[in-house]
Simulated assay, not measured.
Amino acid sequence: MRKLATVRTVDTIRPIPGADAIECAVVEGWTVVIKKGEFAVGDRGLFFEIDAFLPLDDPRFAFLEKSAITWNERRGVRLRTMKLRGQISQGLILPLSQFAEIDALALADPALRQRDWAALFGVEKWEPVIPACLSGEVEGAFPSFIAKTDQERIQNLPEVLAAGDAHVFEVTVKLDGSSMTVFHNAGALGVCGRNWQLRETAGNSLWRVARQDRLLEALATLGRNVALQGEIIGEGIQGNPEKLRGQAFHVFDVFDIDRSSYCGMEERSALLDLLRELGATVRTVPLLEVTTLDRFGGSMAEVLAFAEGPSLNPACAREGLVFKRLDGGLSFKAISNSYLLKHSDR
C-alpha cells in the first residue's frame, strides 16, 4: 500500500532561477517546490505524495482552494505532478509544527517514522472513475490468496539506488491501462479488476478478453494454482494512450498462489509458454532490457530520464518503466515525468 502522508527529511535545497518566493527541495528522493525560507536542510516535515487527496474541510489545506475538485462526494485537492517556473514538483511538504496531532517525541521511534499518517488527517488515495465496461458486477473482494499489483515508486526507494545493487533486473515498459488478474486456484477460476473479483457478464471487458484469449481454459488444463497479472489496454480505457483498436491484456507478472510469491523471469516465461502451447493467446508487456542498477550510478535523475521514451506503440510516449529483479524478490516503477505532466487530468 502506498504511504500517502509520511514524516520525511529535507535533504537539499536549491534556488529556482527567476523565482523570488519559491525554491526547490529534494525530500528523500522526491523533488518538491516549497516556499522560500520555510525549510532548512535537515528539517523534517509531513510529506504528501502525488495522488493524495487532501480534504479542504481541514484549514491547513485551505491555501490549495483554487485547485479544488469534488471526488467521492468530498471537496478537496488531488496532488499532481506539476511544473512551476520550469521546475518539476511532485507532492507537498508542510512543516511538522502545523500538525500537533503527531507527537514529535514519538517520532524518535523508527517504526513510527515509517507510519502513514493519511487516515489521521482524512487523506485518501485519489483514483480515477472506472468505466462501466471494466467495473462490472462484483463477485466478491479481491482474493486474499493473491497479492495486489501496486509497485512502489523509485523515489520512495532511494536506498536501493544508493546500495549499488549488483542484482540483475528486467526492465519492462509500463502500460497505461487498468489492472487485470486471471487466476486458477484449487479448481476455481476467476477474473479480477484492481480491487474486486468480478462476475462474468456480457458487458464486462475483462471477462470478454479473458475468454477471447482462452486464458481460463488454458489455466484449467495446466492445473497449477497461479494468477496472471497485467494490464488491459485499448479503446475506452484511460483515454487509450497507445491509440490501439480493440482491447488487449498484457501480462507483467505471474503469482504462484501455493508459494505466495511471484515467479522469477525464467519461471514466468516458461509458464506463459506452456499456456500458449495449451491454446491461449498470451501477450506480455514489452521487455526493454536486462541490466543492473549500477548503470545509474546512484542517480535518481538518471533513472527518471531512463523512464522517458517510446511505448508499445512506438509513435506514443510510454508511461514509464518497471524494474523487476530476476528472482522476483524486488520490484519498483519509474514513471515518466513528461507523461505525468501531459496526463495530469488522470
Rank of each mutant, 00 (worst) to 15 (best):
T70K: 10
A68M: 07
F47N: 03
N72C: 06
R60V: 12
P17W: 10
A25C: 09
I50N: 05
G37L: 02
I22F: 10
E65Y: 02
I34Y: 01
V27I: 14
D57V: 02
R78D: 09
G18N: 05
G18D: 03
F61K: 03
F47R: 06
A40V: 07
L64G: 13
K66N: 13
T81A: 14
T31K: 12
K36L: 01
K83C: 05
L46D: 03
A5F: 09
A5E: 11
T70Y: 07
D11E: 15
F39A: 12
A40E: 14
G76Q: 04
L79F: 06
G42W: 12
G29I: 06
L46A: 01
L64F: 08
L64Y: 14
D57A: 00
F53H: 04
R8S: 02
I34H: 03
F63L: 03
P55T: 05
E73A: 06
R75G: 00
P59I: 05
L84S: 10
E23H: 05
A25S: 08
V10Q: 07
L54P: 10
P55I: 02
D51E: 14
L64S: 13
C24F: 03
V26N: 13
F53E: 08
E49Y: 04
A5V: 11
L46H: 01
R8A: 00
A62R: 12
K36M: 00
V26K: 08
G18S: 04
D11M: 11
G37W: 09
G37N: 14
I69A: 02
D20Q: 09
R78T: 13
T9S: 09
L84W: 08
E38D: 13
I16F: 10
L4I: 10
E73W: 05
T31L: 07
G29L: 07
F48C: 01
A40N: 14
E49W: 02
L54N: 08
D57H: 07
V27N: 03
G45T: 09
K35Q: 13
D11A: 12
A62V: 10
R78F: 00
M82E: 14
D51R: 04
R60E: 12
P15S: 11
D11I: 07
V26G: 00
T31G: 01
W71A: 12
E28W: 03
E38Q: 15
R74G: 00
P17M: 08
G76R: 04
T12E: 14
F39L: 10
L54C: 10
G42N: 11
I22G: 00
P17D: 14
G37H: 09
T12R: 15
V41R: 13
V33R: 02
L64N: 14
I13K: 01
V41K: 14
K66W: 00
E65D: 12
T9I: 13
A21T: 15
K83M: 13
V27D: 01
V77E: 05
F48G: 03
V41A: 15
I50E: 01
D57I: 02
W30V: 02
V10W: 07
N72Y: 07
D58P: 04
V33C: 09
F63C: 05
T9E: 15
P59R: 01
D58T: 05
K66P: 00
F48R: 05
R44W: 04
R8F: 02
R74L: 06
T31N: 09
L56P: 09
I13W: 01
A21E: 13
